[in-house]
Simulated assay, not measured.
Amino acid sequence: MAYLLVLSTLFGALAHGYAAPGACSGACNLHDPGLIRRDDGTYFRFSTGNRISYASASSIQGPWTGRGSVISGASSINLPGRDDLWAPDVYKVNGLYHVYYSVSTFGVQNSAIGLATSSSMEPNSWTDRGSIGVSSDTSKPYNAIDGNLINNNGRWYMSFGSFWNGLYQVEMNGDATQATSSAYHLAHQPAGAHAIEGPALYQHGGYYYLFFSAGVCCGYDRSRPANGEEYKIKVCRSSSPTGGFIDKTGVPCTSGGGTVVLESHGNVYGPGGQGVFNDPSLGPVLYYHYVNTNIGYADHQKLFGWNRIDFSSGWPVV
């Protein structure tokens, strides 16, 4: 029976052209992962909940060991949700590790992006720096969550956004602690509920690839969306990190464009909350969370997934 189950899972994945997620051992339940490798080779992985949970491992496969929380108490950003922080992104800036986090509550625009820093990422080494100057309310066309940092020729850019009018970006100062520009538009899904969020920019060759999650993210154990409307990972690309993103068919990302990179297949359901990491051994890796339908659909059952991605065609292929 176990042999037949393995064959069924592999066939389901291959039939859709997707490999199964890479191996994960240890602490593998999470939501919205963020990944970085310290100079000594230790991997650190951050995730939503517990005031930004984090774990470490000797490789991307694990075994992952919990290291506690980034923020020891509530965030210094005085908004609802300040003790239940979301969607971390991690980057090393001028020798200091930055973890950006979101302060919000589900389905509202009363949101802000904050920052915590550490020189080592060890427990109790984090300093909460508060808001980076990116916030939203009902007067804004965006929701200020799901921040993602990228460096381009010494200049820092923060992309963010969820639903409403989609994904936006601001330029940051030289140490990537504060926004220095007003927000400008990157991507939008005009149809339906505008279900687009979680931008993740990655440079490869002469292009900047804007990965994002599209569809219904959560609560699959309570109400399953119509087939195909669950979370999936899409991408657009541009020769600039600040705009002009189009999908593989030439549709602008601001007009609903987006080429699917990874979607439900086999026992993998609703992959999203993604990032891209350049692993020294594996090359470019797409990482994300997903539901294993053989285990359960609840948010707390979501798992850490990863796959190598191939850019040889000019577009990322899992």
Rank of each mutant, 00 (worst) to 15 (best):
D279P: 03
G258K: 01
K248R: 15
D279C: 07
S255H: 14
T259M: 06
E263Y: 11
G243A: 02
T259Y: 06
F245W: 06
P252W: 13
C253I: 12
T242W: 01
V260N: 08
G256P: 04
Y297E: 10
T293R: 04
N294I: 10
K248M: 14
D279G: 08
T249G: 14
H300D: 12
Y287K: 04
P271H: 10
Y297K: 13
C253N: 12
P280D: 07
C253M: 13
P252K: 14
V251E: 12
E263P: 05
L282M: 11
S255P: 08
S239C: 13
V291I: 14
S264Y: 04
N292R: 09
V268Q: 05
K248F: 14
V291F: 05
N267E: 08
G243E: 02
N267M: 04
T293A: 08
H300S: 13
P241F: 01
P241A: 07
G266K: 00
F245K: 02
V285A: 08
G266Q: 02
T254M: 11
V260W: 08
H265T: 15
H300C: 06
V291S: 09
N278G: 08
G275V: 04
Y288R: 03
N294C: 11
T242I: 13
P280V: 06
L286N: 00
D299K: 03
G272K: 02
G266Y: 00
P280C: 06
K248W: 12
T259D: 06
V268T: 11
L282G: 04
N278Y: 11
D247A: 10
Y287C: 02
L282N: 09
N267C: 03
N292Y: 05
C253E: 11
S240K: 10
H289P: 00
G273Y: 02
S264Q: 04
L262F: 10
G275M: 07
K248G: 13
V268D: 00
Q301A: 15
Y290H: 03
L282Q: 12
D299S: 13
Y269Q: 09
H265N: 15
N294G: 14
D299G: 05
G250Y: 13
T242H: 03
N292M: 06
H300I: 06
G256R: 04
L282P: 02
Q301R: 15
Y288S: 00
S281E: 12
G296C: 07
V276N: 02
Y287D: 01
S255T: 14
T249L: 14
G257S: 08
I246D: 06
G243K: 00
Y297N: 11
Y297D: 10
L286T: 02
V251L: 15
H265Y: 13
L262N: 00
N294W: 13
Q274V: 03
T249N: 15
Y269W: 11
Y288I: 03
S240D: 11
G266F: 02
L262E: 01
Y290A: 01
G244N: 02
F277D: 00
V251P: 08
T293V: 12
Y290D: 00
P284N: 09
P252R: 15
G266P: 00
N292L: 05
G258F: 00
Y269E: 10
N267A: 06
E263G: 14
L286A: 03
T242N: 03
P241Y: 03
P252I: 12
I246C: 11
G272M: 04
H265R: 12
H289Q: 06
L262Y: 07
V285G: 03
G258D: 02
N267V: 12
V251D: 10
T249D: 15
V285H: 03
G296P: 01
